[in-house]
Nucleic acid binder design. Structure first.
Lengths: 116, 116
DNA sequence: CAGTATCCAGACCGATACTG
DNA sequence: CAGTATCGGTCTGGATACTG
């Protein structure tokens, strides 16, 4: 009974959050954007200026995705010129908390790589 | 001083492990493969048979990547027919431990999604 | 300033066939 | 059984131009 065929293309049933992580982390700029927002750089313009190579289109794709996942929360101020700010939700905080743990694994990882 | 330009294309200096996570999770089958290995299904043939849709080529790409990152360890037995087994390294255990924490966030995530 | 629409090059992944 | 090679479709993300 050790080898029952797993569902179709979507592998083992992965927890939602895990496939979310796949989705988020698989996208090139997501982590960088999250780091910036966490640092308080939360306006699209500022984010774009902070990340060389990131374009408006891609940034908006990421922001939308992160917002859909409720990792970020969008707040628009009805002003001229328009102002928008993105914040981490409390859920988002927990999510990147996990990412931080990955960072914590970092030193160990480097050692691992050294004694090749 | 709040907006110094970040390096070129590679964003904030992300911890190695984090970009590793990006790399791993961005690949479609990596998580499924890891789950299987953890369950003791550690031979390429068995893995391939367990994951419908996964092809030899892609599986080997994943296995190599996971091995390069020292998440998996390859052991070949000099027999005929050849036998190969992949194991989680201790580092790999820690790595998927973090993935498990994501799974732990799962219930909360679902709730979050419900009260949309 | 925030956000959308097009277009296009390249990466990725799946199918298939093949070697040791 | 383990692993490589090749080819082609698809999807992503980068460049650019544009609207409110």
């Amino acid at each position: 009974m050790s080898e029952q065929k797993i569902s179709s293309s979507r592998s083992i049933q992965l927890p939602l959050v895990t496939s979310m992580a796949e989705d988020i982390l698989g996208c090139k700029w997501s982590l960088a954007v999250l780091q910036l927002v966490r640092q308080g750089i939360c306006r699209p313009g500022a984010i774009e200026r902070s990340l060389e190579g990131l374009t408006t289109k891609v940034l908006n794709e990421r922001l939308r995705k992160l917002t859909n996942y409720k990792i970020l929360q969008r707040q628009a101020y009805p002003e001229i010129p328009p102002r928008v700010e993105y914040r981490l939700t409390s859920f988002g905080e927990k999510f990147i908390g996990i990412l931080d743990q990955m960072a914590a694994l970092d030193r160990e990882f480097k050692d691992k790589m050294l004694d090749d």
